[in-house]
């Protein structure tokens, strides 16, 4: 090859196969589920979604015929439901992040997920605000939606839905350091082992103005660990 235009022609030559007609019903069902997990607990409408997912999820999600309507998505509404004391479906202990949220603090806690549409997912991770009186106000829940929730690697990585919110998720494996790239710099997460399952490490990054990329986990010897689902979701 001796000419740039010929490279471009070659790149634009149709591939030697007919692109598969993708299953758009499956795409919309999975996309709707992904959106649903992101917006759970982000407002009154979302509180209903939580109830629907956790109580009647078999009907709402398992049916799969009616994906969420994009126009229905709440615009980053703040939560209106707070829980005094420990939520019934909390797993393990809440992990304080040290990050301020108004007069309170962001905490992370594990929460039971029982959804027929997600047979390999048993728990999710809730970002909540603990108020001065100790009450918890849920913000966003994230959970694995593809494959087993305790497979080695990153899971349920959730970007900030508003200013001041951290990027958070969990890692399964012997990670001692978790990093990401932001504006060309490497930033390091804080992390804590989950009291309900020692294989699981909760991590969170200090808030940034933009999305983090290239999440990477390292073991004690500085060796890279399996990535898993390390793409940051936002919604």
């Amino acid at each position: 090859m001796n000419d740039l235009e010929e490279l471009r022609d070659a790149l634009h030559t149709p591939p030697g196969f007919t692109p598969r007609a993708l299953d758009l019903d499956a795409v919309m069902t999975a996309g709707g589920r992904l959106r649903r997990r992101r917006r759970l607990a982000t407002g009154a409408g979302a509180a209903l979604a939580v109830a629907a997912l956790l109580v009647g999820g078999g009907q709402m999600v398992g049916g799969g015929a009616v994906p969420d309507r994009p126009g229905d998505a709440p615009a980053a509404a703040r939560p209106e439901v707070s829980t005094p004391g420990r939520p019934a479906d909390m797993l393990g202990d809440p992990v304080p992040t040290g990050l301020p949220a108004g007069t309170g603090e962001y905490v992370l806690y594990g929460r039971t997920i029982d959804d027929d549409a997600l047979p390999d997912t048993t728990f999710g991770m809730m970002l909540a605000v603990r108020g001065p009186a100790g009450d918890l106000t849920d913000r966003v829940i994230a959970n694995e939606v593809v494959g087993p929730d305790t497979a080695p690697g990153f899971h349920a990585v959730q970007g900030a839905n508003g200013p001041g919110e951290p990027t958070f998720g969990y890692y399964v494996g012997p990670a001692t350091r978790i990093t990401a790239k932001y504006s060309g710099r490497t930033v390091t997460a804080k992390q804590a082992r989950w009291s309900a399952d020692a294989r699981v490490i909760f991590f969170w990054f200090a808030p940034t103005d933009g999305q983090l990329k290239m999440l990477t986990a390292y073991d004690a010897d500085g060796k890279k660990l399996p990535a898993g689902h390390n793409v940051v979701g936002v919604g």
């Binding site: 591939p15 299953d23 499956a26 795409v27 996309g31 709707g32 994009p70 919604g235």
Partner: peptide
């Protein structure tokens, strides 16, 4: 790889649908 390509395109569309209200 054709099959990897199909998977990647499908995953990209899943995420696009999840964000459709913002990107449409």
């Amino acid at each position: 790889d054709r099959h990897d390509a199909e998977d990647a395109a499908q995953s990209a569309l899943v995420r696009t649908y999840a964000a459709w209200s913002r990107v449409r």
